[in-house]
Write a protein that binds this DNA or RNA. Structure first.
Lengths: 218, 218
DNA sequence: ACAAGGAATGAACCATGGTTCATGATCGAG
DNA sequence: CTCGATCATGAACCATGGTTCATTCCTTGT
């Protein structure tokens, strides 16, 4: 007979694959998908460029995989909260806080996932990611309406609004400057969450918002 | 003496410049900035590719100019409404309706301006465009708060939320499918506007104000 | 009409960066 | 140890699309 992969080899292959994915993910975390160049990935992973193509059929395939892995973690987190059995408004608050909070803390990665200019192939992946978000929001809002907790609105549109408002307010070019954000991310998150809740018709249980600053932009 | 541009020549030059810009704008309207290729622009404008470089120093310069011209019209429109002396909540409603309404009707162009993946140079231009939007929203909200019409919120964040929610809900991958949108764009617009108003704390006075929106569309 | 520019041309050029492939190293089985 | 098969290598290749520039065509003022 000829050749049959032994476990050790299989493991090594898996390792290499992992290290390629890790390298790519690292580049994304540093400079977004724009910074993913095959030569760089190879260098960082400690393999030759040609090797990349033994594990991924193309740059696109590699990037897709990275996108999936990174986004899966986020989605899972939100999905879990969403499926708890608390009242809808409570779940909504938690989901929004988690979404906004995680984005604010991992801004670079969040930017790559949500807002970075990227080409059509990856845009597809992002579309899925966003749709999933929106679905999670929509589901909760729908529950809330069914239970009479929320006023009747078009859940899909409200969900889309939320899915757009949060990233833009946090990480888009409109976002408060980084230092500002870093100095008090929780305030910002809270404010954004409030906007979305109000938009979705959640009667703001918490009475205190204590806001002082009110800045006119330039 | 040698040569001095005559008026006729100056006019012709201006014409050529215009036709180049128009050609580029046309391509943007059809396929976004991604569809702007110098050879295509030249063909469409009826000139040689080299000629383009007599009028614009680079592709980037051309695209920037196109972006500015297109976005200026939109911003002017909103700014005008915003500066009227109606009560803030009224202005806010009008501005949002106009923004959303125009985007929905010129979805392709709106996509190019607001959401299309584009490279950093143009992204700068877009950032300015968005910031201006947000400033307009912020100004109105601030007025509303000062007049006691709106509850106190962080105006910049609310403005950013609005600026993010509208495009996403309308033209992003989350948007209702086109046929759906086309069949009843006004409903969708109204629903989005409602979300934003609620988010900004406008007590929905709505006895349904039928507003004739201004069309100046290209 | 003609000389002296400016304007227009478009094929050639070039930079970027993804992909390939001939070559050599490594591995499994007999 | 040796053979056949797989894996790894990285320099060469290629496609895309923006930019250049030698050449030609037009305009202007005498």
């Amino acid at each position: 007979m000829a050749y049959r992969k032994t476990d050790k080899v299989t493991a090594r292959l898996a390792d290499t694959r992992r290290s390629i994915l890790d390298a790519a993910r690292g580049l994304v975390a540093e400079g977004g998908f724009a910074a993913v160049q095959m030569t760089e990935v190879a260098k960082k992973a400690g393999v030759a460029t040609g090797t990349l193509y033994r594990y991924f059929s193309s740059k696109e395939a590699l990037c897709r995989q990275v996108f999936r892995e990174v986004s899966a973690r986020e989605m899972g987190m939100l999905a879990e909260i969403a499926s708890s059995d608390e009242p809808a408004s409570e779940r909504l608050v938690k989901v929004l806080r988690t979404f906004a909070g995680r984005a604010v803390r991992g801004r670079r990665l969040a930017y790559a996932l949500l807002a970075e200019p990227l080409d059509v192939n990856l845009a597809e992946e992002r579309a899925f990611f966003r749709r999933t978000h929106a679905d999670i929001f929509a589901r909760i809002i729908e529950d809330g309406i069914d239970d009479g907790e929320l006023r009747r609105i078009d859940v899909r549109i409200a969900a889309a609004c939320i899915a757009g408002a949060i990233p833009t307010a946090l990480i888009g070019p409109l976002a408060p400057e980084s230092h500002e954000l870093d100095s008090n991310p929780d305030r910002t998150v809270e404010e954004i969450v409030n906007f979305c809740l109000a938009g979705a018709g959640v009667a703001r249980a918490s009475g205190k918002t204590r806001i002082k600053e009110r800045r006119t932009t330039a």
